[in-house]
Design a protein around this nucleic acid. Structure first.
Lengths: 216, 216
DNA sequence: GTCTATAGGCAGATAGAC
DNA sequence: GTCTATCTGCCTATAGAC
């Protein structure tokens, strides 16, 4: 079933090169920001020239657009996976936080949180994409909080969508500040605090709220 | 009492030019980030040439250092003013939030929050200054929370310093995300939620928690 | 203190060979 | 798809006149 051996690069499948560019750009954007990296940085990581990058993404604005698009799609898939893995609101939130915790432990910041800081300097399409990402996150979180409210799992103060907005901002901010200390534990501790607060009025109802994906 | 009329520029006092440079750079850094502005931008705003800026700040790294230094000093003075204006922990927190609210209403982001996003690209002296700023804020907040705990003004869960850290991160994150929507009200609403949470277990003890400095 | 002029480098981007 | 070569423009920074 082997294709002609000459086509080794093609063997990785179509779009593999573009994906490699996105991977490198994503890592750079999440650590240094959109204004903090250049085509030269990506080219150096991949061992190719700057010119070849323009074959896949004609402009940096187009690359940035594709970056958010893929990131959002991946995040949406992760949220769907959570919904299918469990119905328990507390477990959902714990897994949601775990998504960000993985990002932080990888010495990165949420891509969209990072880009939000640079908002004023971004091409307008990217600005719109950021709002779409945050809106989707808030909607998902609001639904989880609302469910937790109904079932008595969480402190119920209604206004789930406002609480979702605060929670998302708090998680982004915890990542932001933690970066200055190079200490992933700082994020995890803040996240645990935020999760615990949701259960404050329902003691004993937060059994595994502090479960870890990995040993501390 | 007039000086010789020839010295009009000097009349603004020594260092006035340097201060004007810092003012312009600060506004740019808080809206576009450290990597999002150049000497050319500052020069254009002040109506001078790029070269003249180097007389006051030899390098951009030195300018950045001076930027954080002055910002932190101003913030420290504001915190001291709050301490002298009131002893009530709730009022202190309300005034603390008002400091950030003024920043947001000015279409800016906290300078250090903005720079925290760009942390990986900053000169090492600036990186250290960021930690100093956040540490000072956390200490002040922790003292206020601790006092509110003792007096029963706030929900008392001990661990004031951890709660202070979460609160600071949450405020920075609320600013960060609100920027993408260009809506200052988004920050204020999140801040009110955070303040209200501190009083959740002490209903009726949060009379003016939602007081505004200006009409909405 | 501010200017003109310029250096030296890196940015994003394009043309055209292979 | 990737390369070499190159363009244009902006960046930080410096020299030296006024």
């Amino acid at each position: 079933m082997k294709k002609t051996a000459k086509q080794a690069p093609r063997a990785r499948g179509p779009g593999a090169a573009a994906r490699a560019v996105l991977d490198a750009a994503e890592a750079l954007a999440q650590t240094r920001g959109y204004n903090g990296f250049s085509y030269a940085d990506i080219a150096a990581r991949l061992g190719v020239t700057k010119a070849s990058l323009h074959y896949h993404f004609a402009s940096k604005a187009e690359l940035g657009r594709a970056l958010i698009e893929r990131y959002h799609a991946g995040f949406a898939a992760a949220l769907e996976a959570i919904d299918q893995a469990t119905d328990e609101p507390g477990a959902k939130l714990e897994r949601y936080v775990a998504l960000y915790d993985a990002v932080v432990r990888n010495d990165r910041m949420c891509l969209c949180g990072m880009l939000a800081a640079e908002h004023a300097t971004l091409p307008e399409p990217m600005q719109r994409q950021l709002r779409v990402f945050f809106d989707a996150n808030e909607r998902w979180l609001a639904a989880v909080l609302e469910q937790g409210c109904r079932t008595g799992r969480f402190t119920c103060s209604a206004r789930a969508s406002e609480r979702a907005r605060v929670l998302l901002g708090a998680l982004e901010g915890a990542m932001l500040v933690a970066r200055s200390y190079g200490d992933p534990q700082r994020f995890r501790a803040a996240a645990d605090f935020l999760l615990a607060d949701l259960c404050k009025a329902a003691p004993g109802a937060a059994p595994q709220a502090r479960a870890r994906a990995r040993p501390g």
